[in-house]
Design a protein around this nucleic acid. Structure first.
Length: 483
RNA sequence: GCCCCCAUCGUCUAGUGGCCUAGGACAUCUGGUUCUCAGCCAGAAAACCGGGGUUCGAUUCCCCGUGGGGGUACCA
């Protein structure tokens, strides 16, 4: 074994969308390859042609790209590797490591049913067939599968996360490697493909741990070097069971549409089942690569906590460079009908300042959009709770807001420094605490109870829009808003 | 049934025999915060699954139990 650079792969089957569990597996493979200067390959494992779809393949590519997990080589089967799989199966057959089995699926099913308490194991009856009889029956066109013969002994390996794992071979079943229609079974296909792609480290979910001894035996029978293995813990839902649709969003695309940012998703997923040690938690992709080490890989299954994911997304929203955040927010702003890409571009500086102002209080891109609405022209909807709380006495609120409007209309300088004393004096003259003025004003300007500081809102909104919003609030209070 | 894997606050985790009166983060609760909070600050509550060993000394090493998970297909 040379110290050549490692080659890893992520090999999802295209039978659905990219699942967060799969994404996490892909992420660790990617992290390892990027950290240790290896190659990260993406292989679409469509051994099961019936369930595989092109749509799934596209969804996987899209999910991977969104997460920023770039791959160095790509393999999509489309049956192209079938011939190699068959060649490997036949090589095993002629080398005597496998044998033809004429038992039909129906017969097997029947025997399984009558076996004691689910303790079924193939009895090797076809392995006891005389070689010439087997050859004769095959030549006569009788359908058969090819079964791998499990040798005696123990199969063990040094797992990168579990250390030594051992399986007594007597507990393994002679498994089928080639179906009666000459298509390969998963265990053969993976080994054959991993050999062809010269994979040196197989990193996958630990639900594959019991496939590993079978695959190691296959490598040996094929006379090929056995790669290293790393079996990652699973991700469970909040009820402790394997993550599934019941737990809500499980496709990475769902999170994209929920306003999550890939940096946060990657960060969160990396910390599910891995730790850099110490207290560091909010990390960029580059820091993750820098810090990554298989020593921090966890053995225990982790529960997916959407709340922490949201919190982490908020952290990334606040910490990432504005220029990186902008491309995530703009499509959502446009989709909400607040502006066009062109209009945002014309006022880019002001737009970025707005994002900077809003992102602190946001956990998702959707939160940013919701908070951004008041700063763009167009009628506001007043939040019910906000109205109930701060515009309780409608006429009084209207009067107060009218005074604010009058005062602001005469402001010589539209800056936070000038506006603050102006409004505070007005509050004093009106005999109300400043908060009793700022809150109704906040509702008038934003329709919400939560916003940045009131002077920052005023400045960001600009004189014209701000005055217009206050005037609309006054007429709403005196007109349509009245019951 | 059989085989394999796993086990620190509710959750993600730090911890590699004495630094542990077990640390951090999310969530929860409390208090503070020139105007709001979903922001910020301060604080509280909250865990080494059980039993045996090994050792001067176990969260840490070993064994057994218990619990959880995975596998046991002509699925992947």
């Amino acid at each position: 074994m040379t110290s050549a650079s490692p080659r890893l792969r992520f090999a999802p089957s295209p039978t659905g969308y990219l699942h967060v569990g799969g994404a996490r597996t892909a992420l660790f493979n990617w992290l390892y390859a990027r950290k240790f200067g290896g190659a990260f390959l993406l292989r679409i494992e469509d051994t099961d042609r019936a369930r595989s779809t092109d749509e799934s393949t596209r969804a996987i590519f899209e999910g991977m790209r969104w997460l920023g997990l770039d791959w160095d080589e790509e393999v999509v089967h489309q049956g192209a590797n079938l011939e190699r799989h068959q060649t490997d199966a036949r090589a095993l057959l002629s080398a005597g490591a496998a044998y033809r089995c004429f038992c039909t699926a129906a017969e097997l099913e029947e025997r399984r049913k009558t076996a004691e308490r689910g303790a079924f194991k193939y009895d090797r009856r076809c392995d006891r067939l005389a070689p010439d009889e087997a050859a004769r029956r095959a030549a006569a066109g009788e359908p058969f599968t090819i079964r791998f013969r499990i040798p005696d002994g123990t199969t063990e390996w040094e797992d990168m996360v579990h250390e030594r794992v051992a399986f007594p071979n007597k507990d393994l079943d002679d498994f089928v490697i080639l179906r009666s229609d000459a298509t390969p079974i998963y265990n053969l296909a993976v080994v054959s493909d991993d050999i062809a792609m010269r994979i040196t480290l197989v990193m996958r979910g630990d639900d594959h741990i019991s496939n590993t001894p079978k695959q190691i035996l296959l490598y040996r029978a094929l006379g090929q070097p056995v790669p290293q293995f790393a079996h990652l813990p699973m991700i469970h839902g909040t009820d402790g069971r394997k993550l599934s649709k019941r737990h809500g969003a499980t496709a990475v695309g769902d999170y994209q549409h929920m306003g999550l940012v890939p940096e946060a998703m990657v960060n969160f997923l990396a910390l599910l089942g891995w730790s850099p040690g110490g207290d560091r938690e909010v990390l960029t992709r580059a820091e993750l690569v820098e810090l990554f080490s298989p020593a921090g890989l966890q053995k225990k299954a982790a529960i997916f906590d959407p709340q922490k994911l949201e919190w982490m997304n908020g952290q990334h929203l606040s910490l990432m460079p504005l220029a990186e955040l902008e491309p995530y927010v703009t499509p959502a702003i446009v989709a909400a009908g607040l502006a066009t890409p062109e209009s945002l571009d014309r006022e880019r500086e002001r737009y970025l300042a707005l994002l900077d102002l809003l992102r602190v209080r946001a956990r998702t891109v959707d939160d940013v959009v919701r908070q951004a609405r008041p700063y763009f022209p167009g009628a506001l909807e007043y939040d019910e709770a906000a109205v109930a709380k701060h515009w309780k006495e409608r006429e009084a609120a209207a009067t107060l807001l009218q005074d604010v409007h009058a005062a602001l209309a005469e402001a010589a300088d539209w800056s936070a420094e000038a506006l603050e004393p102006l409004l505070r004096e007005l509050a004093e003259r009106s005999g109300v605490a400043s908060g009793k003025l700022f809150q109704p004003l906040r509702v008038a300007l934003t329709g919400l109870t939560v916003s940045p500081g009131i002077f920052e809102v005023l400045v960001m909104m600009g004189r014209e829009l701000a005055l217009e919003r206050i005037a609309s609030a006054v007429s709403w209070l005196r007109g349509a808003g009245r019951r």
